[in-house]
Each structure stands twice: as C-alpha cells, then as structure tokens.
C-alpha cells in the first residue's frame, strides 16, 4: 500500500506570534513541507499531546513564505495555542474543504463581511484578492468587532486601504470608556448602508459569529443579493477534516468536505444552521 495517510501531520515551525487583541493571537508558521491551500480552505492545527482544532489560514493563498493562523482563545485547544511560543513546532493536516471561488469572481465587485475572529478567513481572502487586484472590479471589506480593543489587524489596515480598488470600512458595536475609536460605530449590518451596494450578480462573503452571519444574510437578501451568491463559512466541529467523523454534518452535508464555504441556497433548508 503506497498511499498517503490522510492522518499524516506536516510539522511546522512557529516563526512569530502576534497579539492581535486581548483574546486573539496570530501564529505565523513555516511548514516543513509544502502546504498549498486555496483561500477559504482550512487545516487541522495540532499541538503535540494537546489536540487539534480546525482553523482557516489568515494569510494569502499566494504567499509561499509563511502561513498565518489567527486564533481566538475560546476552548481547550485554543487556550493551549495561546501558550505556544516562537520556535515551537506545531502540526498541520490538510488543507481540507471547499474554497472561495475567486477565479469565477474576476471582473466582479466583491463584498466581504468579517466579524470578530471571522476576520481571519476573510483576511486570507482579502489578501489573496489584493495579490491579483487587477482582475477584480472592486473589493469592499466590512470589518466588525465588539469594541476597538477587539478589532484585529489594526496595523495592516492602512496598507489595505492604500491598494487601489480596495475599500475598507470598519465598525465596532460599542466604544467603552477608555478606548479610542474614530471610525464607524454600530453592528456590521449597519455598515451596509455606508456603501453603494451592487448586489446584481456579485458575490458577498460572510464570516463571523453565527448570529452575525444570520442577520447579515437576511439583510443581504433584502438588499437584493441572490442566495447562490451569498458565501457563508459554516465552521462546525470538524474533527477529521475529510468527511469521516460526521461531527460537522449539516443535514447530509459535511462542513469539512462539502463546506466550510457554502452558498446560502444549498443549506437554507437545513436545521439549526445558525447554531
């Protein structure tokens, strides 16, 4: 038998750790073997003897120098991930699942909505689009966070905004005392009012907490986006990554294999998709 073992782990060296917010860090890693991915796909990220969890890289798919993983501290594995230091070795399996069909979007106006740590997969998308920006008519990125402190990638926004054809609007739900903010305030759905939407035949990507995805989707439908052009990142409990463990199923679909990127029309009749 001379086949690849689907459970094979590619070791990767942590070259940098960036504190993005009080609860979110980006780990920059250098895989010891080739680890190409398409933006939107995810990897199983292992910490030796702790466990693994699925994360979508947050760097451009065209970046061959390193991979970024932006991870929020919210459970057991992620807590341990936050303890990882520069120089450590972690493991990667994958990449797995569906990706954003960015080649089909050439010539279009792409709208991206990233909420909270949902900015991580959408940063990968944004950076991948920026790398080939000439191919797209326009890219609008709406970024939302609870408070200014929770807004990630603060240092990079200037660079994104300097790219011709890219429009970035950021909003926070509230500005607690002691924090500074001179951009938009309001839920991410209110940011839609700030832009000249072009829903006709153009794609929109939504990634964030379930409640944000739910209300953004409904709002986008009202604005005239069609169900098959609304791309949702339905991250569930994806243990194995290749459609074996069945934990991540949405009806008969596997989030890990048929998703995690689904268009709304495909899953709208399944139950509890917003959980």
């Amino acid at each position: 038998m001379n086949k690849n073992n689907p459970f094979e782990v590619v070791p990767a060296d942590v070259t940098q750790v960036i504190q993005e917010s009080p609860t979110i860090k980006t780990l920059r890693v250098l895989p010891q073997e080739n680890f190409d991915f398409e933006t939107g796909q995810f990897a199983e990220f292992s910490i030796p003897d702790v466990g693994e969890a699925p994360f979508t890289p947050s760097s451009s798919m065209y970046n061959t120098d390193y991979l970024d993983f932006t991870i929020m501290k919210t459970g057991f594995v992620t807590e341990k991930t936050h303890e990882v230091e520069k120089g450590a070795t972690i493991g990667l399996r994958g990449p797995f699942g569906s990706s954003y069909p960015i080649h089909a979007w050439e010539g279009k106006d792409v709208l991206i909505m990233g909420g909270g740590v949902g900015m991580a997969p959408t940063r990968s998308l944004l950076l991948s689009l920026i790398d080939k920006i000439g191919k797209y008519n326009s890219v609008t990125y709406l970024a939302g966070a609870r408070t200014p402190e929770d807004m990630i990638y603060k240092e990079e926004v200037k660079e994104w905004r300097s790219v011709s054809g890219v429009n970035v609007i950021r909003g926070v739900d509230e500005v607690p005392a002691g924090q500074e903010w001179n951009e938009e305030v309001g839920l991410i759905t209110t940011l839609l009012e700030k832009i000249d939407l072009q829903p006709d035949g153009n794609p929109v990507v939504v990634c964030g907490p379930p409640i944000m995805m739910k209300f953004s989707t409904f709002e986008l439908l009202d604005y005239g986006y069609s169900e098959e052009n609304i791309f949702l990142s339905m991250e569930k409990k994806m243990y194995c990554g290749h459609g074996q463990c069945r934990h991540c199923m949405i009806g008969e679909y596997y989030s890990c294999k048929d998703g995690p990127v689904f268009t709304y029309d495909k899953i709208k009749d399944e139950e509890n998709i917003w959980e």
């Binding site: 459970f7 292992s46 030796p48 693994e52 919210t74 493991g91 569930k236 409990k237 243990y239 934990h247």
Partner: peptide
C-alpha cells in the same frame, strides 16, 4: 470518531476512537 493527539516527544501520533452522536459533547464547539 474522535481523533486524539497522543504525540510523544514532538512526534505526532493520531489515535482514533469511536464516538456517539447521542452524547452531549459530540457537536459542542469551542
């Protein structure tokens, strides 16, 4: 299945064990 990481000395080891969708923890995410 559940896939557990049981690595030894930084050598990755993956162990699968059977799981049940009837258990409360089955689909709980971080």
């Amino acid at each position: 299945l559940i896939l557990n990481d049981e690595s030894v000395d930084n050598n990755f080891v993956k162990v699968r064990s059977t799981d049940s969708c009837q258990l409360h923890g089955y689909s709980i995410m971080a």
